[in-house]
Amino acid sequence: MILNIIYAFLTVSVLGTLFGFGLAFASKKLAIKKDERVLAVEDALPSANCGACGFAGCAAYADAIVNAAADITLCAPGGATTQVAIAEIMGLEATGGDSVKMVARVHCFGNDETSKKDFSYDGILDCNAAAILFQGDKSCKYGCLALGSCITVCPVDAITKGEDGRINVDKEVCIGCEKCVTVCPTGVMKMIPYDADYFIACNSNDKGAAVKRACTVGCIGCKICERKFPEAGYTVKNFLSEIDYTIEPEGRDKAAEACPTSCIRIAD
C-alpha cells in the first residue's frame, strides 16, 4: 500500500524533472530573438494603446519605429518626453513636435435649455448617425449633438456627459490622442493647451442673427473681445472668436466678462 504511494510519487517526480529539462532546453534553443530596441521603445511608450499614432497599439508602433523607420513624433499622449526617450534608444535626434501638452475640449455650451431644436430625433444614439439627417436635430449646425460618440471612443474614459446635458472632458485624464476630434461630426471637439486659461465655448460660423435664433450662448461675432481688448489675443474669423494661446495675454478675463453671450469661458 505504502509502496504504491511511493511509486506514484517517484514516477511523477521523474517525469516532472524530465519535462522541466525539456522545456528549459526548448526555451533556449527555440527562442525567437526580439530586437531589444523594440522592447525598450515599447517601455518608453505610455502603453495607453489609444491608436492615435495610427498603429494598432503601442507594441505595433514600437515595432514600426524600429523596423519600418516610422516617424517618432506620432505619440500624442507621450508628448515630448516620450519623443526624447525614443530618440535616445534609436540614436536619433528629437526634433519637431510641439512640447505643449494639448487636451480636448467641447467648444459649445449649448444644451436643451439654451439651444433650439428643429425636430425630434429618435434614431440611433450616436452623433454620426444623427448627423446623417440635416446634420443633427439642433438648429445650430456647428454645435455639440451631445449623443456621446466621443465618450465611446475615448480610450481613457476622460469624457463624461453631465446632468445638464453637456459633454465634459477631464483635462487631468485626457491624454490628447485626438480620437474624439476625429470622430466628432460637427468639429466642435477641438484641442487646446493643457494650461489654457480661457476658451471660446462656441463653434458656429453663422452670422450673429442666425446664432441668436438658434441659441442663447453662442458667439455672435460682435468683435467686442477683439476690438476692446487688443492685447488679449482674440481674433474674430467667420463670425467666431479665436484665442491665440501663444502670446502673453493681457485682459483676457476682462474680455470674458464683457462678452455679451458669455461664450468666453474659463478652461478649468
Partner: peptide, 16 residues
C-alpha cells in the same frame, strides 16, 4: 432596431 440607419451610419463612417 434602427437597422437602416445603422447601415447608413456604417457607410458614412467607412467613407470618413
Amino acid at each position: 432596431l434602427p437597422l437602416v440607419q445603422s447601415m447608413r451610419l456604417g457607410k458614412r463612417m467607412s467613407r470618413k
